[in-house]
Every structure is written in C-alpha cells, then in structure tokens.
Amino acid sequence: MAGQSDPHISLFSAEEVEFMAEDELIEIVPNMRMDPLNFICGDFGPFLPQIASQVPLWLAVALKKRGKCAIRPPQWMSVENLTRVLEGERESQGAFQVLPFHYVEISRLLFDHAREDIPDMYMVRSLIEDIRDVRIHKVETSLEKFSGTSAVKIPNLSAMEVNIIRPFVGRALQAFYKHDNPEKIPDVDRASSAQTRAANNEPRRQLRR
C-alpha cells in the first residue's frame, strides 16, 4: 500500500495505524459556536453549545485540546459492555468478540486526551488492556495451528492486532507456500528443458522464472 513508512516489510508503524484510526467518527458536545466545516471527507457541524455532533476523531481531539468540547465516549466503551466482552474473550478459545476495528487506537487516543470525559476511566482502561492482552495471546495461539498453506481466517481481528502479526504471518505463509508446493511446475519445466538447454545454451534465468 502506498504511504507506509517501510514498504519492504509491508508494515504500517503503530503511529500510522493510529493516524488511520483518527478518521473514525465520534460524538462530541461543543461548548462554542462555530460554522460548519467542509472537508473532503464530509461536512461537519454547525457546532452549537451543548448540541451533540459527529466529527472525526482527529477533529474531536484537536477541539478537546483547545478546551472547546467534551468527547462522548462511544457506546462500546462502557464498563458493562467491556466486562461482557472480556468474559466472552476468556470463555471462547477460538473466536474473537466483536469490537470496533480500531478499538486499541481509539481507546488510547481518548485515554490520552479526554480522560475526564470517560466515566470510570481507570476501570475502563484496565478492562481494555486486559481485553487487548487476552486477544493478542489468542492470536498467537491461533497462529500456532498453521501447518501448511491454507486460507487463514480469523474474524473480528482489529487493525492493531493485524498490524502486529502482519510481517510475521506474511513471511511464514510465504515459507509454507514454498515448502508445501515442491516446485512441481519448475521441476517439470527444468527436466524437459534440460536436454534442449544443454544443446543450445539458453540463458539460465528465463527457465527458472
């Protein structure tokens, strides 16, 4: 993909994933009056005091930093929901609970910039950290089941989790692919062309893809 810092290992840095997460919409309650903002990604506003409005997370954080709004934590960030999710994660070994794709980054941004807007901040924070640790551990155990090239399906993984395992899984699958298909096609190709090549000295690289 274009735009990543190191295209060779096809990996986004955690900061880049965070940047992408900032496009997620979130509800804010402004305490100032402002005209609508017209962006390429859409129109937001008008902003009126105490009237809730949906904005991208980066705008919410920018306004929050200036003390112009309060951020309403999303629905899933409640203690009840997170407790339920954590229990679900611990009970089922294979399956992952449904959480927003960017839950790691969104929660981090909100903890950093809007801690006073989150009720039970410490509880929520430790719950999310627990959930994240349980999930990462589960990803690792599910990776252990790889034993050859097959389609891999792990539903409900979040962006950050995918990003952590991407370079490893990519390389591992490539290696599995290489050893799983013992080069049947080039092998046949080579055997049949061996004699002809010996005769007319074709350049070597063409034959070997």
Binding site: I9, R108, N163, I164, I165, F168, R171
Partner: peptide
C-alpha cells in the same frame, strides 16, 4: 519480523 513489530507496538503503547 515478529520481534520488531511487537516491540514497535509496545513502544507506541
């Protein structure tokens, strides 16, 4: 590859 991505994540966290 695995080590680097994990430590990058921890650093970000």
């Amino acid at each position: 590859a695995a080590q680097v991505s994990m430590s990058a994540f921890k650093k970000w966290r």
